[in-house]
């Protein structure tokens, strides 16, 4: 479902004398339907970079990335937008929302973009927020005022509100208490059961052991120091 083939990445810093940072070389991996694969490696080794290249906000200059039938590398923006709408979900560590929009709308938004009616979308958002222990008294407020753990759960709700066939998870269980951590792990297990292909970064070792079928160490994709 997710396929990464011989991908390399470099950044050219034009305002710092054109310095070229080579950050990745020869990255390859696949994630099958119903499989959860963990990206491991020291921080700075390129886990997030690889996730962003699959999401499409980092450009893939060399190599090929595919999600389902759609090629990410070199794709027209509107193809990536369509893919994100229906097929590829992403739970990042940051919540980026229009300020002052109520939490229940923030979570319902991916469904609204898919054409689901407002009433149904908000009902599904409310159910998921309840499951994630975000009290009803908070639904009408903007999540920008929430604590880190609450924002994280709003982010997770946004990523799980639609049954995406492919999911990218960046530290989904970080900054959660035991009960919420358990809920999130159940959500991930349910996604696997329905056949989602999941690629994630889990610093939480116990979560990784329980959820992941395989690990891919990105240390193998660090370029030689020749440059």
């Amino acid at each position: 479902m997710i396929e990464v083939q011989n991908v390399s990445k470099e950044f050219t810093l034009h305002n710092q004398g054109g310095a070229v940072l080579r950050v990745m070389e020869g990255a390859s991996l696949t994630v099958a339907k119903g499989e959860c694969v963990a990206l491991t490696g020291a921080s700075g080794a390129g886990k997030s970079t690889l996730m962003r290249m699959i999401w499409g906000n980092y450009r893939t200059d060399h190599g090929m990335i595919r999600v389902g039938d759609a090629q990410i590398s070199g794709a027209e923006p509107r193809r990536i937008i369509a893919l994100r709408r229906s097929t590829l979900g992403y739970v990042s560590q940051f919540l980026r929302v229009v300020p002052r929009v109520p939490t229940v709308r923030v979570v319902a938004e991916p469904l609204l973009a898919l054409g689901v009616a407002e009433e149904e979308a908000e009902a599904r958002a409310a159910a998921l927020l309840t499951r994630l222990n975000i009290g009803e008294n908070l639904w009408g407020l903007s999540p920008t005022t929430f604590s880190g753990g609450e924002q994280q759960r709003v982010n997770i709700a946004r990523g799980f509100i639609h049954p995406y066939p492919a999911l990218l998870l960046d530290e989904p269980t970080a900054s959660l208490d035991a009960a919420n951590r358990e809920t999130v792990m159940r959500l991930i297990e349910e996604a696997k059961m329905r056949g989602a292909a999941i690629l994630g970064i889990f610093h939480d070792e116990a979560a990784r052991e329980r959820l992941c079928d395989r690990q891919v160490d990105v240390a193998g994709f660090v370029p030689g120091r020749a440059a």
Binding site: S86, G115, A117, P163
Partner: peptide
């Protein structure tokens, strides 16, 4: 993609048909 259909499944109120039907037009 069949998932799109699945996500709109179970919607039968009349006023909602308009919103649901706008999607394929964009994508196609």
């Amino acid at each position: 993609m069949s998932l799109l259909d699945a996500s709109g499944g179970g919607i039968c109120h009349k006023e909602e048909v308009h919103a649901s039907s706008s999607l394929p037009k964009h994508l196609d």
